[in-house]
Design a protein around this nucleic acid. Structure first.
Length: 690
RNA sequence: GCCCGAGUAGCUCAGUUGGCAGAGCAGCUGUCUUGUAAACAGCAGGUCGUCAGUUCAAUUCUGACCUCGGGCUCCA
């Protein structure tokens, strides 16, 4: 029998009998390794342990200690879930089931367009554990396309994947790239089409939890049927799974919607409408501080402040292209009926105005009914974006190259008609305020301006406590886009150059740009590692053309400016939500609605408590006093629940020595702190923005 | 918009197989006057999301709508 030679990662080589598999190799190294081995890498490509090893290959054995193993454990567990569901629901079919971050999902179609109930997850879990106990092997086999299609005769979605792959199209990773279609057989009853590899047998799995279920369009398109998806978390060990579930619980505690109620920051009264928030006084303080500081920084960065109305005639959004490209995202128009009075009466308008007042005041049935007149009025729209208004400010007079870059800033409130299923707390609303700016530059200035904007953005975000970023570059959308490829390329390259100069990770988002131009978005990681899309910076050649914007260059000729759109917070509402979750409601002193709460030990110390409060207020701090009509312990508990930076307790000795007892958030209690030194300390903390 | 689920007091949640709705916390009033995370007593608080339908009777059953939650799509 001939032999083959393989090389291991440490550079050593081994000889094995021809036809030897990864499992044989692992066993030849050690029984422990053989037990731990899950899959192998053959020349860098993952493969089954049961696959015969090619001569001369570089082999790496993957165990559950290797990070790559997780993907395979999750993928294999997904197969077990599919087997369980298909056994429990005869007649069900399945589509795709990939590993994802923290786990996996699988899409199913249940007989009779059924869907999963919460309790079903328990049944499926139980069945999965039976399959795992049975330690079924994952046996790979391959078939030519026509035989494969026949094998999956009852599973139309699998056939779609095969046909896509056969046509050379993207098949969502469900089918391998070879000419043969690969399958894995667990039992005679259960075979799943899969590119593999898989762990050797189901017995190697088990640290998973089915977490959620919901609808999901086949291949992510709303034109396709809706399938039923089950999500699960899966890890290599019980400990890792428990840690993940714990992290989820901790994240849930930070949910800004929950903290918004608990800390009395904002609400969404049903009477107003979905996705429309009101900010309560405490939330209002935070929001005002966020905005105030932003204004100061923008002023320093040479932005000019402008204001614009919330509604406009439709012409403006026709010119801008919004009605052509963005109408789905806009509230329907209001019809303002200019012609009504004329239709009613041919007399002159002065008489009309008088008679209208008379009718309203004296009519027996109340106000006169105004009949709608079709098609003769003017349509007004709530604005979904601020850009056209700023353009009109630019165009209000002739502009010189000496004025550029011209930076216009506005906290501009916009309204977008978000689909009913997507509204979500403050992160996805229908009315929001953008910290919006539009910068008009010459082509030559654009690159430098983009660089300074990015620096400005990152600096400002750091002041709000976010300091872990990456950048995303979104390019031309395939369907909805205006402008030539050349313009898009030029704008995209300018953004790319600015981004790469930042020394921060840059990831591509192909086709993710707005209809009028490419964008860079700044993604920030919060205190528990979640990423949020914050700022966006977009280059726009289109709107200056559509609005025929010009400036006079130093050559005396008219030139077209370039426009840069940017928002740092994204929206004030979303940024507010991110800060709530980032700080878990425990805002740093500079943003905290109440920086210190003063608790007199008893009524005898009330005067001094109010004196302390007055002094702190005089020093510019936000404080409250909790009078002694409850026990001190209870007042402390309640104050702590408000997540304030400081609780101050003042009693007999404090009155005597003009001191305070300081109970700082997250630290030990300190007694007999001189009031003056506490003032300095709080001032320093506020100034540091920590 | 689509698939699922849920709406009971300010908050968190019980409950009614159709017969006048309950707790804890919060609120109010009183007593207590407190040195670092829950003093005591009393009072008040709900068209049981909205509107229809079935019924002698609907918070409970049916339907539509509204709002919220999870998922898809979309997005600042």
């Amino acid at each position: 029998m001939s032999e083959i030679a393989i090389t291991l990662p440490d550079g050593s080589s081994r000889s094995l009998n021809a036809g030897a598999t990864g499992a044989d190799l692992a066993l030849s190294i050690g029984a422990g390794l053989a037990r731990a081995a899950l899959v192998i890498e053959v020349d860098g490509a993952a493969a089954d342990l049961s696959a015969p090893l090619p001569d001369g290959a570089q082999i790496r054995i993957i165990t559950d200690r290797d990070s790559e193993a997780l993907e395979h454990l999750r993928h294999s567990t997904a197969h077990v879930m599919a087997q369980a569901v298909l056994e429990l629901w005869p007649g069900a079919t399945f589509a795709g089931g990939p590993p994802i971050e923290d786990g996996f999902y699988y899409d199913f179609e249940l007989p009779g367009s059924g869907s999963f109930a919460d309790e079903d997850l328990l049944r499926i879990d139980e069945k999965m554990r039976q399959i795992i106990s049975a330690d079924q092997p994952f046996e790979r086999f391959e078939l030519p396309l026509d035989a494969a299609l026949q094998l999956m005769a009852d599973h139309p979605y699998k056939r779609v994947f095969m046909e896509l792959a056969a046509a050379g199209e993207e098949a969502d990773g469900e089918v391998g790239s070879g000419t043969e279609i690969s399958f894995y057989r667990n039992t005679d009853e259960f075979v799943d089409m899969c590119r593999g590899p898989h762990v050797p047998s189901t017995g190697r799995l088990g640290h998973f939890k089915l977490t959620r279920h919901g609808g999901a369009y086949f291949r992510g398109s709303e034109l396709n049927p809706m399938l039923q998806r089950i999500y699960a978390a899966a890890f290599a060990s019980k400990k890792d799974l428990a840690a993940h579930l714990h992290r989820q619980e901790e994240a849930a505690k930070r949910d800004h919607r929950k903290l918004g109620v608990e800390l009395d920051l904002f609400s969404f009264p049903e009477e107003i409408g979905s996705g429309l928030a009101v900010f309560h006084p405490k939330g209002g303080i935070i929001r005002r501080l966020m905005e105030d500081y932003s204004r100061v920084r923008h002023e320093q960065a040479d932005y000019e402040f402008v204001y614009s109305p919330h509604i406009t005639k439709s012409n403006l959004f026709e010119t801008s292209g919004h009605l052509q490209w963005f109408a789905d995202g806009m509230f329907p128009p209001m019809e303002i009926d200019h012609d009504h009075n004329h239709a009613d009466s041919d007399s002159d308008s002065a008489v009309d105005a008088d008679s209208a007042v008379d009718t309203g005041a004296s009519g027996e049935g109340g106000l006169a009914v105004i009949e709608p007149v079709q098609g003769t009025g003017t349509q007004y729209y709530l604005k979904p974006m601020n850009c056209p208004f700023h353009i009109l400010i630019f165009k209000s007079r002739q502009r010189s190259y000496r004025e550029l870059p011209l930076r216009m800033f506005e906290f501009g409130t916009v309204y977008r008609y978000e689909k009913s299923g997507v509204v979500h707390g403050l992160t996805r609303v229908r009315g929001m305020t953008q910290d919006d700016a539009h910068i008009f530059t010459t082509k030559e200035q654009m690159g430098a301006e983009l660089g300074s904007i990015l620096t400005f953005v990152l600096d400002l975000l750091r002041d709000y406590g976010l300091d872990d970023f990456y950048l995303e570059l979104s390019t031309k959308p395939e369907k909805k886009a205006v402008g030539t490829d050349e313009e898009w390329d030029e704008a995209t390259e300018a953004l790319r150059a600015a981004a790469t100069a930042m020394d921060i990770d840059l990831v591509m988002d192909p086709g993710g740009g707005a209809f009028y131009g490419p964008k860079i978005s700044v993604q920030a990681r919060d205190a528990i590692g979640r990423t949020w899309q914050m700022s966006t910076i977009q280059v726009d050649f289109q709107l200056p053309q559509r609005f025929e914007m010009t400036y006079i260059g130093n050559d005396g000729e008219k030139h077209r400016p370039i426009m840069i759109h940017r928002a740092l917070f994204g929206s004030v509402e979303r940024f507010f939500a991110v800060l709530v979750e980032h700080y878990a409601g425990a805002f740093p002193a500079w943003l905290s609605p109440v920086q210190a709460k003063i608790l007199p030990v008893s009524e005898a110390h009330a005067d001094y408590a109010h004196e302390v409060a007055a002094e702190l207020r005089g020093a510019g701090f936000r404080v409250e006093v909790a009078d002694a009509d409850e026990t001190l312990g209870n007042r402390i508990r309640r104050a702590k629940g408000e997540k304030l930076p400081f609780v101050l307790v003042v009693g007999e000795s404090d009155v005597e020595h003009r001191t305070v007892g300081v109970n700082p958030r997250g630290n030990e209690v300190e007694r007999d702190v001189p009031l003056a030194s506490f003032v300095d300390r709080l001032a320093a903390q506020v100034a540091s923005k920590k």
